[in-house]
Nucleic acid binder design. Structure first.
Lengths: 321, 321
DNA sequence: TTGTAAGCGTTATCAC
DNA sequence: GTGATAACGCTTACAA
């Protein structure tokens, strides 16, 4: 491996002069600077990240932590984060799994964006206590080193519930997400609140886990008890797709017997037939805003918690044309 | 930041003893070892990754490089890589964008898995020349430090072409991928070869770029020239979905006027209607095998290039029921 | 303008 | 068994 020492030797200068030249310090003559740069290029020199990180105590790398790599909307979210970071001299790495949690305390990264229920609140607070900067996308955590950029789950769930209720539905099912999911929890509470304003609504809550299988399972229970047209509020789109799968194998029809609305507006929801009604928000903006907040936190600027707004996407899945 | 120096001071021992204890060396007494470990925990000690990487000249981190984060099958691929690596004491980070290319030469990572046309062959060969270990998923590159784990594009394209040809189609369209894509290139050549064996086939090649938009564009050209039922070979599923979109807005029907087959078997292809015929392969296995080859390369073991086999998925999109 | 030297947090080679 | 000490590659006062 070629280091600044090798360059110094070949150029007949000291390593500090090489370091200055490489970092474009004005202290060194244009002439020697040029000579050193030429030799560096000739020797194919590349700086050693570990050494620089060790010395400067920063890596210029931000880590994004996801529960898994398969989320249907991670692409846009990560793209938003990446674009912001690259425009601000930071690099992005994506991590998943508990083993990668060490990256933060080990100072491999300068900050973290969390969308991963595998992190406990305690763990994040502990990191924050030790001075690490964190932006959370999936929980509420109050700490000077932690900033929240959260979806407006309440507004979204209200929009969804009002939509089917206004269509006249009085037989309702809600398919919930995992117990430990912040988003599911908020959405469920908002639905309960909205539904509670109507006294003639029969609302049944079904467990789920934000994946297709749990949607299929819920659908089987709904179909078994079928007596009259019912509306199904799925707390995310993936479960709604699961409901589609099961209903497709039955004598019933989505948009006719089973009306359904999801949450997230994933790409698939535009391709299932009939089109799934859902709640939309900009994943790109969510990511970009999270990145912006994190860099501000790192720079020591004061930041407020942020909220991502949502809109209703109508669809034939609730009988709308 | 608490370092081994702090632990040494508090324990009244030298830093080398602390290091030994922390690394479970048998040289230190169980007693002192336990005491040191207790103090480390008490002080909330975590090792500094940069320092360890600098000294040991390895990071135990593997980087996966993707063109972007939105690929519809990256989830399974990454999961396969992650599972293998985590079972072998390595951690995975996912990178995208030319800025992140520096991770390899800067020795931030111990090896790289490449599925990213933004890397040139020259760049990769240069890294390999400097001793970096690389597994390529998207090109053929011969170098002792580079291993290939490639899809059997030829077999897949042959399967797809034979499938529609055996259905009796003689009017064919091929929607190609980007010019710089290895997979597209291989698939296109295989299709040409298969089609060449029939002298009565009229085959038109259309440009594309592996995204929906290019599929839509190709479909518009196909529909404008429509005279009789035609078969469309899309060199990946995303473009096939684009064709669906455009055909859906016309008077023609997929599986009746326009027969179509894709490549990749992405999740969406099972949800478009009618179901898209396509070429399937295990993305999970592809990732796991790539990871395995890379660790062998790093360990200095001899490795052979590998191939991922493909199968045909029939579908109503070619009139099959 | 350039050189000297200390130090970032580890690991590892020696002595004792 | 344990302790000095050098080294990894780099940055940055401070000295010359």
């Amino acid at each position: 491996m070629v280091s600044i020492k090798d360059i110094a030797k070949k150029a007949g200068v000291s390593i500090s002069t090489v370091s200055y030249a490489l970092n474009g310090s004005p202290k060194v003559t244009d002439e020697t600077c040029a000579r050193i740069l030429a030799i560096a290029k000739e020797l194919n020199y590349t700086p050693n990240a570990a050494a620089r990180t060790l010395k400067k105590r920063e890596s210029k790398i931000i880590g994004v932590f996801l529960t898994d790599f398969s989320g249907p909307f991670y692409g846009h979210l990560l793209q938003g984060i990446k674009e912001y970071l690259n425009g601000h001299d930071y690099e992005l790495i994506v991590c998943s799994g508990s083993q990668s949690h060490r990256f933060l305390p080990e100072r491999m990264i300068d900050g973290a964006i969390i969308l991963d229920a595998a992190f406990t609140d305690e763990e994040l607070l502990q990191h924050a206590d030790r001075g690490h900067k964190i932006v959370v996308l999936d929980r509420e955590l109050i700490h000077p080193n932690i900033n929240q950029v959260l979806l407006d789950n309440k507004a979204g769930a209200n929009l969804a519930a009002d939509y089917v209720l206004e269509k006249g539905h009085r037989k309702l099912y809600v398919v919930a997400g995992p117990q430990d999911s912040y988003d599911s929890d908020k959405r469920l509470h908002a639905v309960r609140q909205t539904v509670g304003r109507y006294k003639d609504v029969d609302c049944t809550e079904l467990p789920g886990s934000f994946d297709k299988e749990s949607g299929e399972k819920a659908a089987r229970r709904i179909l078994e008890a079928y007596k009259e047209p019912a509306a199904v509020l799925c707390l995310n789109d993936e479960m709604a797709v699961g409901v589609y799968n099961t209903v497709a194998e039955s004598e019933y029809r989505i948009g006719e017997h089973i009306h359904i609305i999801g949450f997230d507006n994933i790409e698939l929801s535009a391709y299932v037939s009939p089109r799934l009604a859902t709640i939309d928000y900009s994943k790109h903006k969510w990511g970009a805003l999270a990145a912006e907040q994190l860099l501000k936190l790192i720079a020591g600027e004061k930041v407020e918690h942020e909220r991502i707004y949502v809109t209703l996407v109508k669809g034939e899945s609730v009988g709308d044309v």
